[in-house]
């Protein structure tokens, strides 16, 4: 297999009871590629993302990340997840820890870095996401945009090979969306491999290398944003785009 393939999803199926959410997804993500997944709610895009790090267990199919087959029952899932960053819609920062501790805790407990090393890295990453002087703030003292940036720093601290963004800006007040997108854009420019579920068409258009449109648990259309967003071929893609762009 091509060693530049970071994520390789084959015939992925996921059902919740009778609800067949993913119906045979095939998707590859290359190193350094930014793939945006768009689609109406209920199309299965978040479930797809959550299958990539096995927060949801697929019903059938395989997920291979950097040569590790996560869907293999013998796979050390904790070890694999340490290399897959995830940023959640609701941030999910640890409320009993400061921003710095949030970024340090997994470095210490999973990567076994020393306290000093972890703190130095965490401080550097908080600075990189534009949070200067917030090391000792608790999540409750930060705005949504600041919290999400701490969450991105927390993911970066693990030196992930790919980061999954699950509607990272959907829970934010409109005026805070920009600061988070800006951080995501700078990561993309630095060559980070990213799989992004988003409703931000501007971001998808400007930053994505490839846009994947999902509906009804299948990939309907994919390609560069100039094609999928600006000149969609499929009727369902056109209907979706006109509904989100005109509202």
């Amino acid at each position: 297999m091509n060693s530049d393939v970071v994520v390789n999803i084959t015939n992925l199926n996921k059902s919740f009871g009778d609800n067949h959410v993913l119906r045979g997804i095939d998707l590859q993500v290359q190193r350094g590629e930014v793939v945006c997944i768009i689609g109406p709610s209920g199309s299965g895009k978040s479930t797809l993302l959550r299958c990539v790090n096995m927060l949801e267990t697929p019903t059938a199919g395989t997920v291979v990340v950097l040569g590790r087959e996560l869907t293999d029952i013998d796979c050390d899932i904790d070890e694999a997840r340490a290399h897959i960053g995830m940023v959640f819609q609701q941030f999910n920062l640890f409320p009993h820890m400061t921003a710095l501790e949030n970024v340090c805790v997994a470095q210490r407990k999973v990567l076994k870095r020393s306290a000093d090393e972890a703190a130095t890295i965490a401080h550097g990453l908080l600075t990189r996401v534009g949070l200067v002087g917030k090391d000792n703030s608790y999540p409750a003292q930060l705005s949504g945009g600041q919290q999400q940036r701490v969450a991105i720093a927390r993911a970066l601290a693990m030196n992930p090979d790919v980061i999954l963004f699950d509607e990272a800006t959907s829970a934010l007040d409109p005026e805070l969306v920009g600061e988070v997108l800006q951080v995501m854009q700078s990561l993309a420019q630095d060559g980070m491999t990213m799989l992004v579920v988003t409703h931000e068409m501007g971001f998808a258009k400007g930053v994505a290398d490839r846009v994947v449109f999902m509906d009804g648990g299948v990939i309907v259309e994919q390609g560069p944003p100039s094609q999928v967003i600006s000149a969609p071929v499929e009727e369902r893609t056109r209907a979706f785009l006109s509904s989100v762009l005109n509202h």
């Binding site: 999910n92 920062l93 997994a106 693990m158």
Partner: peptide
């Protein structure tokens, strides 16, 4: 405790008990 807390911890590579 919201279930996102466990998900965030697991997604960072922590085991269930950790």
């Amino acid at each position: 405790v919201p279930k996102g807390q466990m998900e965030a911890a697991r997604s960072l590579g922590m085991s269930y008990s950790r």
